[in-house]
């Protein structure tokens, strides 16, 4: 099953590679990993999307907690949470495509953030599933380039991950 794990870690050089190294050393799946400093510049917040059986997820959480630089770990799937990912897609926008791309973008509540002679760049935010759905609904030959940030997650309401 897919799990989204959030963690707070010391904003130290090499902290990211400790997490990435742990996943490869223990052969855990890693779908995406995002990291950036928080409002407290000594801390980084990371969101990891992974998958595995309950036993494996339990081990992943324990092993992450064991890393000296990791301050707190939370499996977002243990409660209600929100997941968001940002995607930039450059699509063909020649005569025949121009209208259709604008329409598709509106349907998915995306924004066109760059317009060129033959292309649009669309910005789209949402859950991973929504971004997948957008890609699915486009004509494959119209897609020139995509870039995705990987998921960021946050607990709903009172679920707060803070030191």
């Amino acid at each position: 099953m897919k799990h989204i794990i959030s963690l707070l870690m010391e904003n130290e050089a090499g902290a990211l590679s400790r997490v990435a190294g742990l996943f490869s050393a223990r052969a855990y799946n890693i779908e995406s990993l995002t990291v950036a400093p928080t409002e407290d510049s000594t801390l980084s917040r990371m969101t990891i999307v992974t998958s595995g059986s309950d036993e494996i997820i339990e081990q992943i959480i324990k092993q992450l907690n064991k890393l000296i630089d990791v301050v707190k770990v939370l499996d977002l799937n243990d409660g209600k949470f929100i997941e968001r990912e940002l995607m930039l897609v450059k699509v063909k926008a020649t005569n025949t495509y121009r209208e259709e791309m604008k329409r598709m973008c509106d349907i998915f509540r995306g924004r066109i953030i760059d317009v060129a002679d033959g292309s649009f760049t669309i910005e789209l935010t949402g859950s991973g599933n929504k971004l997948d759905a957008f890609i699915e609904s486009l004509d494959k030959s119209a897609i020139l380039e995509t870039v995705r940030t990987g998921a960021s997650g946050i607990g709903r309401g009172d679920r707060i991950l803070k030191v």
Binding site: E55, E58, Q59, K62, Q63, N65, K66
Partner: peptide
């Protein structure tokens, strides 16, 4: 003393 050794 190491939680990750338990139920591994």
């Amino acid at each position: 003393v190491d939680p990750s050794s338990i139920s591994k």
